[in-house]
Design a protein around this nucleic acid. Structure first.
Length: 335
DNA sequence: ATGGTTTTTACTGCGTC
DNA sequence: GACGCGGTAAAAACCAT
């Protein structure tokens, strides 16, 4: 038991989370936009927000790292009893254990012998106490998977809940005919993100899932049709805030980006048929240069998940068809 | 299945720090 | 020389038919 407490110390958790996701950015102390020193930690959304201007300073990963879930079932149980209404994300509303399906921690590394032994005991315990109907087993596994995906993607608890709700709806309506729980769970997460207008690409989700991109999107399509939910078409704008904050760009750039995208919509053949992420990435690139703050195409490519080539193609189109002048104030002054 | 479109992969050249 | 950037051709992925 003292091992549990040790592992649950917040420092260890934080380290594990950061390493696991690969986020290196140190927490900022002041807002780059308005200089305010005060920040608001919004645990609900998983964001850190400037108290002065509301700029999202870091939207990442307040959630617990998945690698510790094996040790926190007791903690989670007690927490949910004391009030967290995390009903939908747990198949039996808090009585479930959350043991992962693999002997790996969040980094993909292995556990120590002692940790493995502990996990083994917990797994055994979990199997013995688990509800045995196939539906509940299904849900249990799905909820664990949704929880794991949400953690690794840094999704807010409410988004996780949404994904869980979608999954439950699918099961309850006997609309679930495929065999892959993981793919359906991933599809539910993807659908939830998209439904709430903070889209993650299928690629991003597939990165953390056992199932591939193709299968997940197939299951997503099935989910949408079966559940008869109307999805908002994903637009470049939806990606912009996340990319901007991941790139540590000021809000000014975001404003310019939005203006560019708004204008781009007017021109035919500029937006339709194109990957919205590529469009967002290119618009950000142009906007950054116009605002005199340099970002490399590589960096944008990294956070957006499209290649530099695509960014180039898009931004060339933007510049030519919108007749943008990409000269920075500095360059104009020099000339 | 097929054909058209878009994106990615892989490689090259150019200028700059 | 490493790096950012631009361009290209061919492969791959995607989508509607």
């Amino acid at each position: 038991m003292e091992g549990t407490n040790g592992i649950m110390s917040t420092n260890t958790l934080d380290e594990g989370r950061r390493e696991g996701i690969g986020i290196e950015t140190a927490p900022k102390t002041s807002c780059p936009e308005c200089g305010a020193l005060e920040v608001i930690r919004d645990n609900e959304k998983g964001e850190v927000i400037c108290a002065g201007c509301g700029l999202v300073l870091s939207d990442h990963r307040i959630d617990t790292g998945p690698e510790w879930r094996a040790f926190t079932s007791a903690e989670r149980d007690s927490r949910s009893r004391t009030g967290a209404p995390a009903a939908f994300a747990m198949h039996d509303k808090g009585l479930s254990t959350m043991i992962d399906w693999r002997d790996k921690d969040g980094k993909g590394g292995s556990f120590s012998a002692a940790q493995r032994a502990q996990i083994f005991r917990l797994r055994k315990w979990q199997i013995r106490t688990r509800v045995h109907s196939s539906l509940d087993r299904n849900l249990a596994q799905a909820m664990t998977e949704i929880d794991r995906l949400s953690s690794q993607l840094g999704l807010s608890p409410s988004l996780k809940e949404h994904a869980a709700r979608l999954y439950r709806k699918l099961i309850a309506g006997r609309l679930w005919r495929s065999r892959s729980i993981d793919a359906t769970a991933a599809a539910a997460v993807y659908a939830a993100c998209r439904h709430r207008g903070s889209p993650r690409s299928v690629e991003e989700i597939a990165e953390h899932s056992r199932e591939g991109k193709k299968k997940i999107s197939a299951h997503y399509r099935m989910l949408v049709t079966k559940l008869k939910i109307r999805m908002p078409i994903s637009s470049p704008e939806m990606y912009v805030p996340r990319f901007i904050s991941e790139l540590d760009l000021p809000t000014e750039v975001q404003r310019t980006t939005m203006e560019i995208l708004a204008r781009a919509k007017e021109v035919r053949g500029l937006v339709t048929g194109r990957d919205p992420r590529g469009l967002a990435a290119a618009a950000i690139y142009v906007a950054a240069i116009m605002n005199d703050c340099r970002v490399t195409q590589r960096d944008i490519s990294g956070v957006s998940g499209v290649t530099e080539v695509t960014i180039r193609n898009r931004y060339k189109e933007l510049v030519s068809k919108l007749e943008l002048t990409m000269q920075t104030p500095a360059l104009l002054a020099a000339a």
